Computed example of a mutant assay.
Amino acid sequence: MLIILLTGCSAIPLSSSTPQVDRVPAGTLDAATARTSLAALAVSAPGRLDGYSRDCDSGACVFGQPWFDTDGDGCDQRSQVLARDLTDVQRKPGRCGVQSGTLDDPYTGTRITSVSKIQIDHVVPLAEMWRSGAAAWAPEQRVAAANDLRNLVAVSGKVNQSKGDKTPDEWMPPNAAYACSYGRIYVTVKAAYKLTVAPAERSALENALATCDTPPAT
Rank of each mutant, 00 (worst) to 15 (best):
M1Y: 11
L2I: 11
L5P: 06
L5T: 12
C9S: 14
A11H: 10
L14G: 15
L14T: 14
S16Q: 13
P19F: 13
V21E: 14
D22T: 15
R23K: 15
A26G: 08
T28M: 04
D30S: 11
A32N: 12
A32V: 14
T33D: 04
T36C: 00
T36D: 15
A42P: 09
S44K: 15
G47A: 11
R48P: 04
R48H: 07
L49C: 11
L49T: 15
Y52P: 08
R54A: 01
D57V: 08
S58N: 08
S58W: 00
G59P: 03
A60I: 00
C61N: 12
G64T: 10
Q65H: 12
Q65R: 14
D69S: 08
G72H: 09
D73V: 04
L82C: 06
A83V: 10
R84G: 08
T87S: 15
V89T: 12
Q90C: 03
C96I: 14
G97Q: 13
V98F: 06
T102Y: 02
P106C: 07
Y107M: 06
G109C: 08
V115H: 05
I118L: 05
L126W: 06
S132D: 11
A135P: 00
A136I: 02
A138D: 13
E140L: 11
A146D: 04
D148R: 00
N151T: 03
N151V: 04
K158T: 12
V159M: 06
V159Q: 08
Q161A: 13
Q161D: 12
D165F: 04
T167W: 02
P168H: 05
E170A: 12
P173M: 03
A177R: 14
A179R: 14
C180D: 06
R184D: 05
I185Y: 06
I185T: 04
V187I: 00
K190H: 08
K194Q: 15
L195Y: 03
T196S: 15
A198N: 02
P199M: 03
P199G: 05
L205P: 04
T211D: 11
T211W: 01
A217F: 03
A217P: 00
